[in-house]
Amino acid sequence: MSVSIDRSIAAEAAALRTHYAQTILPIWRGPGFNSALQLPYEAVAAADHAPLPPVRYRAMACARQLFVFSQAGEAAHAEQLFHAMCRYFHDEKHGGWLYSVDPQGAPLDATKDLYTHAFVIFACAHYASTTGDRDALRVIAETASLVQARFAAADGVLHAALTQDFTTVRTGALQNPLMHLTEAYLAAYETTGEPAYETALARLAESVARRFVHTPTGAIAELPIGSADNRLEPGHQFEWFYLVKRAGPVVAASGLEAELARAFDFAQRHGVDRATGGVCAALDESGGVKDATQRIWAQTEYLRALATRGRDEDLETLALQIPRFQARFLHPRGWYECVTPQGDVARADMPSTTPYHLATAYASLPY
């Protein structure tokens, strides 16, 4: 790879990080943060950053913001978020974490949601890593133990959602919570060094390979293989590609690395617009576009996957893709959450969950 390409990518990535530090983070320290409740608002308006009228606050959104400010080294703000997350969302009676609270901070949706629990583990791992907070380490251990004990299904996978007391299944296995649990266990292992997280990772990867891999393409489907109206999301193929590469030997026995090498090519060939670089939301099992919406998180996963695979042709593509992403999805007051294939804004408000995607992608780009 030429020195000029390397320098080009580093300069482009630096511009993304500057926009993030100078434009994105101040939103969520300021107008996007409810200082009375010490919780992030769900979303702010693009024009003036005014919070959208709150109808709920989610534990997952708070956890993502905890990660964002932990990674940014802003320990004081992260500490506020950690304590607010524990105060509002921890279920003292049944254990685990509530899905959401109402605008006054009272319990709203008490569903026990695997996606939420994964983000609690992930965020607390990063917070503990940067601060050494022993309460966060305790939350990681307790939540991971609860996930294994209470979300387990008879076939070795994990349910996506249960009732508050964990007695009734609301939603069976889904891909997305399992992917974020993989991410959470990686973070927990890196923070604690506990070998139990490696064991959990290996078991989780095996169950995903068994239940979700679409054999013709290697892609990991959103629903278990054989489900009606299944779909393949290009952004998730890129996200899984990064996670499995990072896990390395721990998940080698699952065969996911080889499958995702095929899935990367499938997603890039069918899910990325050649003219604009926009990544579509979903494909069908033959590669046809099922949902043409371009969501910003899928674009960030494409950037991270290109940097992770890192072949010469990937870096050449990355050098073109970063400025296309910047022009299409970023603006001086923030970002566009969703655009159409034609480039029209399909969702103008800015959710508090999106900075997590920006942060994880930018951290993987060359310096």
Rank of each mutant, 00 (worst) to 15 (best):
D133R: 09
D133G: 09
R134A: 15
D135L: 11
A136P: 04
A136T: 10
A136E: 01
A136V: 09
A136H: 06
L137F: 14
L137D: 07
L137W: 10
R138E: 09
R138A: 12
R138L: 03
R138F: 00
R138C: 03
R138Y: 00
R138K: 09
V139E: 02
I140C: 00
A141T: 15
A141L: 06
A141V: 11
A141Q: 12
A141C: 07
E142C: 07
T143I: 08
T143S: 09
T143Q: 05
A144Q: 07
S145Q: 15
S145E: 15
L146G: 02
L146Q: 07
L146I: 07
L146H: 03
L146F: 02
A149F: 00
A149K: 11
A149M: 03
A149Q: 14
A149L: 07
R150G: 00
R150F: 00
R150A: 06
F151E: 04
F151M: 06
F151S: 07
F151D: 01
F151I: 10
F151N: 02
A152P: 03
A152E: 06
A152Q: 10
A152F: 05
A152T: 11
A153T: 13
A154L: 12
A154H: 12
D155V: 11
D155P: 02
V157Q: 08
V157K: 06
V157W: 05
L158K: 05
L158D: 02
L158R: 06
L158A: 05
L158C: 05
H159S: 08
H159I: 06
H159N: 12
A160H: 11
A160M: 06
A160D: 12
A160E: 10
A161V: 12
A161P: 09
A161G: 14
L162T: 04
L162G: 00
T163L: 02
Q164C: 10
Q164A: 15
Q164F: 02
D165G: 13
F166T: 07
F166I: 03
F166S: 03
T168I: 09
V169M: 14
V169D: 02
V169L: 08
V169Q: 11
R170P: 05
T171Y: 05
G172Q: 11
G172N: 12
G172I: 13
A173R: 13
A173L: 11
L174V: 14
Q175I: 09
Q175H: 09
N176A: 13
N176Q: 10
P177F: 04
P177D: 09
P177R: 11
L178T: 07
L178F: 04
M179R: 14
M179F: 06
H180E: 09
H180Q: 10
H180K: 08
L181I: 12
L181W: 01
L181C: 07
